[in-house]
């Protein structure tokens, strides 16, 4: 018995090392840099920088675009998954695989592809000209960034939602219909509450990368559309101001923690109900 516990604990060592070196130490570094100045003494000035207009705007834009992306992903994923679970299991799995395919490609590569589509003389505008329609200016706009993010992050919404929905017994939906609910009432009163855990993990998995992205916004948003991720990147790689970059990272982390606390809170209140 003692031996088996020892062996089990032994398996924990690699994880502890990993967590210590790659999670805990960097976190301590960020907090240290974020809360000190170049002289090494404690200060909140770096954190307070967020009240300055340009930084505040970047953060606000990031949160808004991440929210829009998450909502659109949710609105796209629900009907898709609902249609798929009605199909035969094998067909559903194949289509899900197709939707997950973007994950197999490098994010940078697929985002660059979007760049060539959205460019002033890009594929989209060439097609529009062929149809003698007016050009669309999409490159370097928030719309382009949102489309790029939806393309890259939709699979993270579809997967958990599909898994949760496909686990619900179909006769539950039939029971709802049987008891006089129309399709919309069935969705609101039965499908939505039962699939909420999947939706919540989908929301988390889309919102967090969307909030912190800098590659997608750099390629599709141009130099004028700075998200908080781009600002942080610049502080580190252009301005070499590690203190400011770390402080902004801390602020971003606060938003992520809020998101996660809300998620856990939601999950717990659900579980209590059950």
């Amino acid at each position: 018995m003692f031996q088996s516990v020892t062996v089990r604990n032994l398996f924990l060592v690699p994880f502890c090392l990993w967590a210590g070196i790659f999670i805990f130490i960097p976190l301590v570094c960020i907090i240290y840099y974020g809360l000190t100045n170049s002289g090494g003494s404690f200060t909140l000035d770096n954190i307070a920088i967020i009240t300055q207009r340009e930084y505040y705007y970047s953060l606000r834009l990031s949160v808004v675009l991440a929210l829009i992306t998450t909502i659109i992903c949710l609105l796209l994923a629900y009907p898709l998954c609902l249609i798929l679970i009605e199909r035969a299991k094998s067909a559903g799995t194949i289509i899900i695989l197709l939707f997950v395919l973007p994950l197999w490609m490098n994010t940078l590569l697929s985002t660059m592809a979007w760049q060539t589509i959205f460019e002033r003389d890009g594929i989209l505008n060439q097609v529009l000209r062929l149809l003698s329609m007016p050009d669309m200016t999409l490159i370097n706009t928030p719309t382009a960034v949102v489309i790029g993010m939806i393309y890259n992050y939709l699979p993270y919404m579809v997967l958990p939602l599909y898994v949760t929905l496909s686990k619900i017994d179909k006769s539950i939906f039939e029971a709802a219909r049987d008891l006089g609910a129309n399709s919309w009432q069935t969705f609101l009163k039965v499908t939505l509450p039962l699939s909420l855990p999947g939706a919540i993990s989908g929301i988390t998995m889309v919102f967090i990368p969307a909030l912190t992205t800098f590659a997608i916004s750099a390629l599709l948003g141009g130099s004028k559309l700075l998200l908080i991720g781009n600002v942080i990147e610049q502080e580190f790689t252009v301005e070499y101001d590690w203190h400011l970059g770390s402080a902004l990272s801390i602020i971003l982390m606060i938003f992520i923690v809020i998101n996660m606390v809300l998620t856990i809170f939601f999950d717990m209140s659900r579980r209590e109900e059950e």
Binding site: D169, S171, E174, D178, L194
Partner: peptide, 13 residues
């Protein structure tokens, strides 16, 4: 017409 399903199909939530 109403149905009593084989696996009851109660709403677990």
């Amino acid at each position: 017409i109403n149905t009593v399903f084989q696996k009851y199909s109660l709403f677990s939530h």
